[in-house]
Amino acid sequence: MGCQTIELQTLNDNEALDLFKAHANINNSSRGLKGMPEKIVKHYGGVLVAIVAVARVLKNQSTPIWKDTLKTLEDGGVDRKLEEAYKCLKLSYDNLKNEKAKELLLISSLFPEDFEILINVLTKIGTGLGSCGENDEHHAKRSVVHAAIMQLIDCSLLLRGEEECINMHDLVHEVALWIGDKYIQSVIDSKVAINKNLRYFFWKGDDFLNELDGKELEVLLIFLDGSKDLEASDTFFIEMKRLKVLILAISEATFKHLVGIAELLFSDDWSEEMMWKNLIPDVIPIDNGGMMNDLIVLHLRHVPNIECLIETENHNYDVSAFSNLVGLHLFYIDVEDLYRGSLPSGFF
């Protein structure tokens, strides 16, 4: 893991011990611990985020777990400057009994530092991985994933961000990437070499990837910044037999292009910032040659601001749209009318 300067909020010894005891729920009746809290706190270096994370994981745990924690702290070792904080946060990760929570913490580290991750998006990723039990109902899986996210927040390994978002402390982000170093990678510089045998991968750039060793890949997150047409090799996904979750975030121009040529369009959870009130002409401009006539199935869910599919009130000529549409599914959308203005030819 590359070197990086990380500013940490630190406490003096007394403040650190008081904070640790508060979050670990230690009181005068906790006599069986025999000075272990004081010994463990010495390893923190006063790093607030590490103190809170480890204390909450050890809360209400048995004495043998406390002894194992102290022994691990005394035996381990990482980078000198951040050694104690790394060890403490690694312990917090190791002591999580919830395997789904461990998985979600590593996946969260794929996103760039200070990135606001929508809880709904992280929930979808965790649900898509399906390790809650393959036969569970979808809503049951979502409940398990949501509970795991809440546990990470309670342990301060994830932090509540703006609105319905979470983020990670820079140090936690670094440690999570270090823990998953052999099978997770986040690339925001196209010059960086991509590792092989990855399970979780994040790519952010102007263009689609040329190639990727995807034989072990389970989660693929692609964020494209460019305004170019999306071009991907026909064989790009052919080896990704284990892929369970694919998120493709694209520019507005690329999105509009794909919508215009799609045959099957399934689109969920548009951003509130997308102020489009219709598909035509706000997304697809009106064209005398016809619009979205290749589309066979249209599925929209949780799309804010949309009032109708087609708006032709300010156009005086006949238009053709949705002439091959056979399936229309609208969920949680406040559509007032399917069309406004003259009825496009081929629509019904």
Results as ranks from 00 to 15, higher is better:
166 I>Y: 02
343 L>R: 15
100 K>Y: 01
325 L>A: 05
23 H>V: 03
326 V>K: 14
30 S>V: 07
40 I>Y: 06
47 V>E: 09
279 L>S: 05
92 S>W: 04
162 E>Q: 12
24 A>G: 02
302 H>W: 07
272 E>M: 11
142 R>M: 12
312 T>H: 05
330 L>C: 08
209 L>W: 06
304 P>T: 04
173 H>F: 09
294 D>E: 13
151 Q>R: 14
20 F>R: 06
261 I>H: 11
228 K>R: 14
216 E>M: 13
28 N>A: 14
239 E>V: 01
250 I>H: 04
207 D>K: 15
336 E>L: 10
115 F>E: 11
274 M>D: 14
168 M>W: 06
328 L>F: 07
183 Y>W: 14
116 E>F: 07
236 F>C: 03
223 F>V: 11
32 G>W: 03
58 L>Y: 09
211 E>G: 10
254 T>Y: 04
300 L>W: 04
296 I>E: 07
46 G>Y: 08
70 L>N: 10
308 C>Q: 13
91 L>V: 02
182 K>S: 14
83 E>W: 00
296 I>P: 03
118 L>Y: 11
282 D>Q: 09
34 K>S: 09
179 I>S: 08
333 I>M: 08
10 T>G: 01
274 M>E: 12
5 T>A: 12
7 E>I: 13
279 L>W: 06
129 L>V: 04
224 L>K: 02
108 S>V: 03
313 E>G: 01
153 I>T: 10
156 S>M: 05
130 G>T: 07
18 D>S: 13
263 E>L: 03
303 V>K: 00
260 G>F: 02
95 N>A: 06
121 V>L: 13
64 P>Y: 07
201 F>T: 09
71 K>W: 05
106 L>P: 00
224 L>P: 05
309 L>H: 04
69 T>V: 05
94 D>K: 15
191 K>F: 10
338 L>C: 01
248 L>A: 12
296 I>A: 02
287 D>M: 03
133 G>P: 02
192 V>G: 00
123 T>V: 09
182 K>I: 02
167 N>A: 01
91 L>G: 10
299 H>M: 03
261 I>W: 01
